[in-house]
Amino acid sequence: MTGVRLEPMTEDEYRPWRAEAEAHYTQSVAASGRPAEIAARNAAVTFANLLPDEYATPDHHFWYAYDGDRRVGFLWIRVTDDTAFVYNVAVEPGLRRQGYGRAIMLAAERWCHGNGLTRIGLHVFAHNTGARALYEQLGFTETGRNLAKDLLPQS
């Protein structure tokens, strides 16, 4: 694999992707320690706030990533000023651990350079150690940290 290319999603492709992306985000929130119903509510609110106009929300870009004719993953970023923020990147389940995540992120960097952007950021859940390691290998550095503590009911 020499790299992947990013192909913009169509509005018709966006609809099923959106449902799958929200479900995956729900799973990630739940894996970080939130109850499933709260995770689902959190995901629904987050996506509604980030994408009020769905596919047509300004400054948001959605791509599928391809290696030749094979779809290998997807990427969603938002651009503000000179910065891209990766909201979602994923590799198709049967193709993980084969270098596609790295290739998609490098394609994202090429797109950013080609569009005059000077910074790229992202959020990664603490439990996603594989993704964290990849991002560190790609030169991402930690710029903040969220902490949480579950409170037990008081008697």
Rank of each mutant, 00 (worst) to 15 (best):
G3D: 05
R5F: 11
R5E: 07
L6S: 00
P8L: 01
E11W: 09
E11C: 08
E13G: 09
Y14N: 03
Y14M: 02
Y14L: 03
R15V: 07
R18W: 04
A21E: 04
E22A: 04
A23S: 11
A30Y: 06
P35V: 01
A36W: 15
E37C: 10
R41A: 11
N42M: 08
T46S: 15
N49G: 12
L50Y: 07
L50W: 05
L50I: 09
L50E: 12
P52W: 00
D53Q: 15
A56W: 11
A56I: 07
T57D: 00
P58I: 01
F62H: 07
G68T: 04
D69Y: 07
D69M: 05
D69S: 09
R70G: 06
V72L: 04
F74N: 15
W76F: 06
I77K: 06
R78A: 14
D81F: 14
D81M: 14
V86D: 02
V89K: 06
V91N: 02
E92D: 08
E92K: 10
E92W: 14
E92V: 05
G94R: 12
R96M: 02
R97G: 10
Y100C: 09
Y100P: 09
L106S: 02
H113Y: 14
T118L: 10
R119G: 11
R119P: 15
R119Q: 08
L122S: 13
H123P: 15
H127W: 06
H127D: 04
L134I: 01
L134Q: 05
L138F: 05
L138N: 05
T143Y: 14
G144Y: 09
R145T: 13
R145Y: 04
D150C: 14
L152Q: 11
Q154A: 10
